[in-house]
Design a protein around this nucleic acid. Structure first.
Lengths: 340, 340
DNA sequence: TCCCCTCACCCAATCGATTGGGTAAGGTGG
DNA sequence: CCACCTTACCCAATCGATTGGGTGAGGGGA
């Protein structure tokens, strides 16, 4: 049985007294940069320290070192909800990348509520996180300028906001790809399930689509763009509204989110339309479920994991006072039966 | 502008010197039980301390108090993957309930890999979490007995394992509900997409179904129970295998997970079958998407949020050395078009 | 031979909060 | 008047790691 199975964790002092050296020597050997470490102990001593540390299963006490150094190696992330698959995958990227930098990541849900966002932020700051990643900014978000004033290091993910570093998908391009695709397929009468108007994702995807559509010579009427929630229910309701008010039925629907697209497909079927034959549907994010649906869903693939990783990289730069330019990752359209 | 916007956080010492009292007095006023607090300072002093703390935005330094007390108020959770909606929702419950107890929760993904589970556990223990919640135990999980020997406080969630406290859905009952339902609908030839054989959820749901089916006088052949992954791809492959090998085509399929059920529906449609007319499908968990699918999916509703909350309550008891009986929450069957 | 330098360490303060053990002042009972 | 108790505090050690500043021994150069 390994010594690490004893109850009280091994401390630096244990190692030091065992070897007859001073705790500071042990600390420098185990934790300092190569140069400091070398000037702190002979090669032989250093070897013995490291060997004993391994044997006894020493692991540094983060509360103790955090107290002394003022850095916790903790990184807070706030998302609207983890049960949104898109954010869950981005967070997996955050966690991976954070671990590689020897940071531990934390998540909290804000339910896309700005009061909750503020509350959760304060909880994380009370935990003394070294930096924050926000996946839930609104286009008018008073908290961000305030945090910047207070000198809190943070970056944005998923959604962007002018003036702050963010890691996002190039959502405008994503919307353009869909416009090109549907235009090429011969559609001339389309509708957009546009998502929440306070989210840059929704706004950019919609405007990318609409602007390109008009540039191609297409026409998009008043009732053809419907703001909605991002989930299945939101998609269903939005399509119901479109079907109710449209003068002419659209032949294609672009939903800015896969789950909204699934809800849209449900509403269309209830209306007696067969998706892929009577009407085309395109989603966004290309979540794993899109390809596996009974009628496989065309979708814009966004690099969700990479966005999470990029957010961590951005935050690393902010923490090191390096320049941090926003990162916009390229999406790719996956055409499937729902629009082919 | 509030004083809390200054860079260096306010400490107990700041409050003490401002008021001309000793830091220990401030500490007792702000943090101790009522009795200790009252014997530490006069009502008047206590009032002044609390007022100044609020005015300056004092918030205790968790690293410092954690160092002294040995408790971090940190709670680690390990799940197979957060991008599994079921676990994401359970974790939302964990986070909520933890916050109510003034704990902060942490999650990590193990990808259902036992080596990874061990690695992530060690990372969390190195962070000095007060306790752990595992959402990813396998039926043969060597880590759990080992942690119990080491005296690490932990509980299980979602999946159970004999001998350890767990918060789960009553999966056996869930399987029974589906058997009763399909039998009542007149089905006599059924197949099961059974999930991963190392997960108690899969095993219990399957055995609950199969045992009840046989008790009703039904028959389930060899090839009718197919183990699979829990995701859409897993469901698709499992149904493909069933369709390939079955002597007689089943008239109903029970998938122990909604996403596997969605994959199953896809495979059935590819095979030219219309779900709800030619063949019934029932899923498990009643995730929000089930009701919104183009063909709404019957599913066993499991109280995922409550399971997460229950896990925290269990862990609270373990940490307080109170007896902790496993909790099994009751599921309810939601019948929809896919099996009606 | 003397001075200086390097090597390989040690010493002690420090981070912020907690907590067991005082202690001076004032009041009470005998 | 004195012993004793309560009230309202203060003092100092402690948790574990880090870090600026020593220091003694040994070696090399002038």
């Amino acid at each position: 049985m390994n010594e690490s199975s004893r109850r009280r964790p091994v401390t630096i002092k244990d190692l030091a007294s065992e070897l007859g050296v001073h705790p500071s020597t042990v600390s420098r050997v185990l934790h300092s940069e190569a140069e400091v470490a070398r000037s702190a102990a002979s090669a032989e001593t250093a070897r013995k320290v490291r060997e004993l540390a391994r044997k006894l299963g020493y692991s540094p006490h983060p509360q103790a070192s955090g107290l002394r150094t003022g850095r916790t190696h903790l990184l807070g992330t706030i998302v609207p909800r983890l049960s949104d698959l898109v954010l869950a995958i981005m967070y997996e990227g955050v966690e991976e990348a954070a671990a590689e930098l020897k940071y531990s990541a934390f998540v909290m849900n804000s339910r896309d509520d700005m009061e909750e966002q503020r509350r959760k932020t304060e909880i994380m700051l009370a935990r003394r996180v070294d930096g924050l990643i926000f996946g839930d900014v609104h286009l008018d978000c008073p908290l961000m300028p305030e945090l910047a004033r207070r000198g809190v290091p943070f970056v944005l993910m998923n959604r962007r906001l002018r003036g702050f570093p963010s890691a996002t998908c190039d959502d405008v391009l994503g919307g353009q790809l869909v416009a090109d695709h549907l235009w090429d397929q011969g559609h001339r009468n389309v509708a957009v399930v546009a998502g929440e108007p306070y989210a840059s994702t929704a706004v950019d995807r919609t405007s990318g689509f609409v602007d390109r559509w008009r540039a191609l010579g297409g026409d998009i009427g008043q009732g053809a763009v419907v703001w909605s929630r991002f989930d299945t229910t939101g998609g269903r309701e939005a399509v119901a509204a479109i079907l109710r008010t449209a003068r002419v039925l659209p032949t294609a629907v672009f939903a800015v989110n896969d789950f909204a697209a699934i809800g849209a497909m449900g509403a269309l079927r209830s209306h007696g339309l067969t998706v892929g034959r009577d009407i085309a549907v395109v989603g966004f994010n290309d979540t794993p479920v899109a390809a596996q649906l009974p009628i496989p869903l065309s979708s814009v693939r966004s690099p969700m994991l990479e966005i999470g990783r990029a957010a961590v990289e951005l935050l690393r730069r902010v923490l090191n006072h390096e320049p941090a330019e926003s990162i916009r990752l390229k999406p790719v359209l996956q055409v499937r039966e729902s629009s082919a």
